[in-house]
Computed example of a mutant assay.
Amino acid sequence: MTKRKVAVALSGGVDSAAAALLLTRAAYEVIGIHMRLRDSPSFDDHAHRAADICRILGIPYHQLDLQKEFESCVVDYFCREYRHGRTPNPCVACNHYVKFGLLLDKALSLGADYLATGHYAKVEHSRHGHRLLKAADTRRDQSYFLYTLTQEKLGRVLFPLGEHNKDEVKQMAMQAGLPTATKSSQDICFISRKNYGAFLSQRFPTLPGEVVDTRGRKLGQHRGIAFYTVGQRHGLGLASGKPLYVIRIEPESNRIVLGHEEELYSRKLTAHNLNWISGKIPRESITARAKIRYKSKETEATLSFRNDSVDVHFAQPQKAVTPGQAIVFYNVDEVLGGGIIDSVERET
Results as ranks from 00 to 15, higher is better:
residue 157 V to C: 14
residue 264 L to D: 11
residue 166 K to E: 10
residue 250 E to M: 12
residue 174 M to Y: 14
residue 172 M to K: 14
residue 258 L to T: 01
residue 251 P to R: 04
residue 234 H to V: 02
residue 196 Y to H: 13
residue 190 F to W: 04
residue 238 L to E: 12
residue 230 V to N: 04
residue 242 K to Q: 07
residue 199 F to S: 13
residue 280 K to L: 04
residue 203 R to M: 10
residue 259 G to H: 06
residue 227 F to R: 07
residue 217 R to P: 13
residue 202 Q to S: 12
residue 199 F to E: 11
residue 190 F to P: 00
residue 281 I to R: 06
residue 234 H to N: 10
residue 254 N to A: 04
residue 225 I to C: 00
residue 179 P to W: 08
residue 173 A to R: 15
residue 227 F to E: 09
residue 283 R to E: 09
residue 170 K to E: 12
residue 174 M to K: 14
residue 177 G to S: 13
residue 175 Q to L: 15
residue 198 A to M: 14
residue 221 Q to D: 12
residue 231 G to I: 05
residue 209 G to P: 05
residue 180 T to Y: 07
residue 248 R to W: 06
residue 166 K to G: 04
residue 198 A to H: 12
residue 194 K to L: 04
residue 168 E to C: 10
residue 161 L to S: 09
residue 251 P to N: 00
residue 152 E to L: 13
residue 154 L to T: 07
residue 154 L to A: 05
residue 221 Q to P: 10
residue 217 R to Q: 15
residue 229 T to S: 00
residue 163 E to D: 11
residue 236 L to C: 03
residue 238 L to K: 12
residue 275 N to W: 02
residue 228 Y to R: 07
residue 164 H to G: 01
residue 176 A to P: 04
residue 273 N to Y: 10
residue 231 G to R: 07
residue 185 S to W: 08
residue 167 D to W: 14
residue 211 V to W: 08
residue 181 A to R: 09
residue 265 Y to E: 10
residue 157 V to D: 14
residue 268 K to R: 09
residue 227 F to M: 08
residue 180 T to S: 05
residue 155 G to F: 10
residue 213 D to K: 10
residue 202 Q to K: 14
residue 201 S to H: 05
residue 258 L to M: 01
residue 161 L to V: 04
residue 170 K to D: 10
residue 153 K to H: 09
residue 241 G to S: 08
residue 254 N to K: 03
residue 226 A to F: 01
residue 281 I to L: 03
residue 173 A to D: 13
residue 246 V to W: 05
residue 231 G to H: 09
residue 252 E to K: 01
residue 256 I to T: 00
residue 221 Q to M: 07
residue 188 I to V: 12
residue 177 G to N: 15
residue 174 M to P: 03
residue 180 T to G: 09
residue 181 A to E: 13
residue 205 P to H: 13
residue 234 H to C: 06
residue 155 G to N: 08
residue 246 V to G: 02
residue 178 L to S: 10
residue 192 S to R: 07
residue 244 L to H: 08
residue 260 H to Q: 07
residue 156 R to C: 08
residue 262 E to C: 03
residue 189 C to A: 02
residue 173 A to H: 15
residue 204 F to P: 00
residue 255 R to Y: 06
residue 200 L to P: 04
residue 232 Q to R: 06
residue 210 E to D: 14
residue 211 V to H: 14
residue 277 I to P: 08
residue 222 H to W: 00
residue 268 K to H: 13
residue 227 F to S: 07
residue 167 D to S: 15
